[in-house]
Structures are given as structure tokens and as C-alpha cells.
Design a binder for these strands. Structure first.
Length: 138
DNA sequence: GCCAACGTTGGC
DNA sequence: GCCAACGTTGGC
């Protein structure tokens, strides 16, 4: 079965791609949105995801991989929420900006555009291919 | 179970 | 810094 693709959003002031690369792996916790939680729950070990900088940069800056599947979020006392662990794989040669995504009609189905507040979302295979290619062009 | 009020996110 | 969109909470 083919891997699923995802997009994870983070504010660089909270957790940036630089930190992600330095630390290599991190616990993706603190997500308090049920829709995002549902998607995290569907992540499988080995799934790949884009890492997006919101607010500052507003661009996809690299690729991460899921290394640990859904487990209870250590930062959540209520026990309602979960987390996953992810690992930095590769930075994009050319970050793919939100403006560019918006300017590309083939990418208009991306939930990033249609639901800007969602912080974890699935990415369709075709969209993954297009953005991945854009990111790796010099 | 509905809905108003409130808080938060994120693009501009 | 503003504002629109949306999710969550709590009263009924």
C-alpha cells in the first residue's frame, strides 16, 4: 500500500524548520484541534509530510517523515489529545510559497488554501508530486 | 442539541 | 495591527 502524504504547519517563532533540522526528530504535540487530531491518528510510520511555515515566510520549506504513530500527547493533562513523532528529511532547494501555490491552478485543492486555519492536513498524491518537484528545482 | 459568545489562527 | 474565518465552550 502506498504511503499517505501530509502537511504540517508551524509558526517559525514557535518551532522552525531550522530547529527541526538541528534536532532531527521531534514530538509533534500540542495540537488541540479535532480535525487535525483525526489526521494525525491516521498517520503511519514512514509517511512523508511537508513542513510549512505559517505567518512568517508562508512557505513549504522541507520534508519530514513520521517515525512514531499516534500516542497520547505528554503535554495534555486531559488525555484527550495525541501526538506523533516526526523526523526532518530534506530541506527544499526552493521553498514553495503560499503565493505560488495560489498561483498554480493544479494546487487549488490543497486544504491549505481552502481551510487556512487547519494545522495538520492530508495532501493528495498528485499535489504532493507537483509541490515536491517545485521544491527541488534550483 | 442548539446557538450565541468568545478565543484563536493566519493572511494581508 | 486588523479582520475574517472558524473552532470551542457553555448556557439554556
Amino acid at each position: 500500500m502506498k504511503n499517505n502524504y501530509w502537511l504540517l504547519k508551524s509558526e517559525p517563532s514557535t518551532w522552525s524548520w531550522d530547529q527541526m533540522q538541528q534536532k532531527k526528530t521531534t514530538c509533534w504535540d500540542g495540537v488541540r484541534n479535532f480535525q487535525a487530531q483525526k489526521f494525525m491518528n491516521q498517520m503511519k510510520k514512514g509517511d512523508l509530510g511537508f513542513f510549512y511555515h505559517s505567518n512568517i515566510g508562508k512557505e513549504i520549506v522541507g520534508v519530514i517523515k513520521v517515525i512514531r504513530e499516534f500516542y497520547p500527547d505528554p503535554t495534555d493533562e486531559t488525555g484527550r489529545f495525541g501526538a506523533v513523532d516526526v523526523e526532518a528529511i530534506t530541506p527544499f532547494k526552493t521553498p514553495v510559497s503560499l503565493a505560488r501555490i495560489k498561483a498554480t491552478p493544479a494546487l487549488h485543492n490543497l486544504l491549505l488554501i481552502r481551510q487556512s486555519r487547519l494545522s495538520v492536513m492530508p495532501v493528495e498524491n498528485e499535489i504532493w508530486e507537483i509541490i515536491y518537484k517545485m521544491g527541488n528545482e534550483a
